[in-house]
Protein backbone atom coordinates (compact mmCIF):
# COMPACT_ATOMS: atom_id res chain seq x y z
CA UNK A 1 0.00 0.00 0.00
CA UNK A 2 1.18 3.52 -0.72
CA UNK A 3 3.06 5.06 2.17
CA UNK A 4 0.73 8.08 2.32
CA UNK A 5 -2.47 6.07 2.42
CA UNK A 6 -1.13 3.76 5.06
CA UNK A 7 -0.10 6.71 7.27
CA UNK A 8 -3.56 8.26 6.93
CA UNK A 9 -5.27 5.03 7.97
CA UNK A 10 -2.84 4.48 10.84
CA UNK A 11 -3.53 7.99 12.12
CA UNK A 12 -7.25 7.10 12.19
CA UNK A 13 -6.46 4.14 14.45
CA UNK A 14 -6.38 1.41 11.78
CA UNK A 15 -3.62 -1.21 12.07
CA UNK A 16 -3.01 -1.69 8.36
CA UNK A 17 -0.25 -4.29 8.81
CA UNK A 18 -2.46 -6.52 10.89
CA UNK A 19 -5.43 -6.14 8.56
CA UNK A 20 -3.28 -6.98 5.52
CA UNK A 21 -2.06 -10.06 7.32
CA UNK A 22 -5.65 -11.18 7.90
CA UNK A 23 -6.32 -10.78 4.16
CA UNK A 24 -3.14 -12.76 3.41
CA UNK A 25 -1.53 -9.70 1.83
CA UNK A 26 -4.45 -9.35 -0.58
CA UNK A 27 -4.51 -5.55 -0.65
CA UNK A 28 -7.28 -5.27 -3.23
CA UNK A 29 -9.60 -7.35 -1.09
CA UNK A 30 -8.80 -5.33 2.06
CA UNK A 31 -9.38 -2.05 0.19
CA UNK A 32 -12.67 -3.34 -1.17
CA UNK A 33 -13.99 -3.87 2.35
CA UNK A 34 -12.41 -0.69 3.76
CA UNK A 35 -14.08 1.42 1.06
CA UNK A 36 -17.38 -0.34 1.52
CA UNK A 37 -17.35 0.53 5.25
CA UNK A 38 -18.72 4.10 4.96
CA UNK A 39 -21.72 2.85 2.95
CA UNK A 40 -22.55 0.09 5.46
CA UNK A 41 -25.83 0.88 7.24
CA UNK A 42 -25.00 -0.95 10.47
CA UNK A 43 -23.85 2.24 12.18
CA UNK A 44 -27.04 4.14 11.31
CA UNK A 45 -29.11 1.19 12.55
CA UNK A 46 -27.14 1.36 15.79
CA UNK A 47 -27.74 5.13 16.06
CA UNK A 48 -31.51 4.72 15.56
CA UNK A 49 -31.71 1.96 18.16
CA UNK A 50 -29.66 4.03 20.62
CA UNK A 51 -31.96 7.01 20.12
CA UNK A 52 -34.97 4.75 20.74
CA UNK A 53 -33.14 3.27 23.79
CA UNK A 54 -33.84 -0.18 22.28
CA UNK A 55 -30.97 -2.12 23.84
CA UNK A 56 -31.85 -5.40 22.06
CA UNK A 57 -31.65 -3.99 18.55
CA UNK A 58 -28.75 -1.77 19.52
CA UNK A 59 -26.86 -4.80 20.80
CA UNK A 60 -27.42 -6.70 17.52
CA UNK A 61 -26.13 -3.76 15.47
CA UNK A 62 -23.19 -3.05 17.78
CA UNK A 63 -22.24 -6.71 17.78
CA UNK A 64 -22.27 -6.87 13.98
CA UNK A 65 -20.30 -3.63 13.75
CA UNK A 66 -17.72 -4.93 16.21
CA UNK A 67 -17.19 -7.97 13.99
CA UNK A 68 -16.54 -5.91 10.87
CA UNK A 69 -14.39 -3.37 12.70
CA UNK A 70 -12.33 -6.17 14.25
CA UNK A 71 -11.75 -7.78 10.87
CA UNK A 72 -10.56 -4.47 9.42
CA UNK A 73 -8.27 -3.91 12.46
CA UNK A 74 -9.88 -0.53 13.22
CA UNK A 75 -8.28 -0.56 16.66
CA UNK A 76 -9.55 2.73 18.00
CA UNK A 77 -13.12 2.18 16.89
CA UNK A 78 -12.97 -1.39 18.20
CA UNK A 79 -11.75 -0.12 21.58
CA UNK A 80 -14.77 2.21 21.79
CA UNK A 81 -17.20 -0.50 20.73
CA UNK A 82 -16.22 -3.08 23.34
CA UNK A 83 -17.62 -1.23 26.41
CA UNK A 84 -20.75 -0.25 24.43
CA UNK A 85 -21.42 -3.86 23.39
CA UNK A 86 -20.97 -5.06 26.97
CA UNK A 87 -23.29 -2.35 28.35
CA UNK A 88 -25.94 -3.29 25.75
CA UNK A 89 -25.49 -7.00 26.40
CA UNK A 90 -26.28 -6.23 30.06
CA UNK A 91 -29.33 -4.20 28.89
CA UNK A 92 -27.91 -1.05 30.55
CA UNK A 93 -29.14 1.81 28.31
CA UNK A 94 -27.58 4.52 30.52
CA UNK A 95 -24.12 3.01 30.52
CA UNK A 96 -24.43 2.56 26.76
CA UNK A 97 -25.42 6.18 26.30
CA UNK A 98 -22.35 7.27 28.29
CA UNK A 99 -20.14 5.46 25.77
CA UNK A 100 -21.91 6.81 22.73
CA UNK A 101 -20.14 10.21 22.15
CA UNK A 102 -16.64 8.71 22.13
CA UNK A 103 -17.78 6.02 19.70
CA UNK A 104 -19.42 8.51 17.39
CA UNK A 105 -16.23 10.62 17.36
CA UNK A 106 -14.06 7.61 16.52
CA UNK A 107 -16.49 6.59 13.77
CA UNK A 108 -16.33 10.11 12.25
CA UNK A 109 -12.54 10.06 12.37
CA UNK A 110 -12.40 6.71 10.62
CA UNK A 111 -14.82 7.78 7.90
CA UNK A 112 -12.85 10.98 7.27
CA UNK A 113 -9.64 9.00 6.79
CA UNK A 114 -11.35 6.55 4.42
CA UNK A 115 -12.76 9.43 2.38
CA UNK A 116 -9.25 10.84 1.89
CA UNK A 117 -7.83 7.65 0.45
CA UNK A 118 -10.47 7.22 -2.24
Amino acid sequence: MEQGKQQLLCAAGIDVEEALGRFMGNEALLLKFLLRFPGDDTFSRLRQAMEARDTTRAFEAAHTLKGVVGNLSMKELHGRLVPLVEALRAGDADAAAENWPALEAAYGKTLAALERIT
Binding site: F23, F33, V68, N71
Partner: peptide, 12 residues
Protein backbone atom coordinates in the same frame (compact mmCIF):
# COMPACT_ATOMS: atom_id res chain seq x y z
CA UNK B 1 -23.97 -14.09 7.46
CA UNK B 2 -21.25 -11.39 7.23
CA UNK B 3 -19.74 -11.13 3.77
CA UNK B 4 -16.44 -9.81 5.12
CA UNK B 5 -16.05 -12.86 7.35
CA UNK B 6 -16.71 -15.23 4.48
CA UNK B 7 -14.34 -13.26 2.24
CA UNK B 8 -11.50 -13.40 4.78
CA UNK B 9 -11.88 -17.16 5.35
CA UNK B 10 -12.35 -17.91 1.64
CA UNK B 11 -9.24 -15.85 0.81
CA UNK B 12 -7.36 -17.79 3.48
Amino acid sequence: DEEINRAILANL
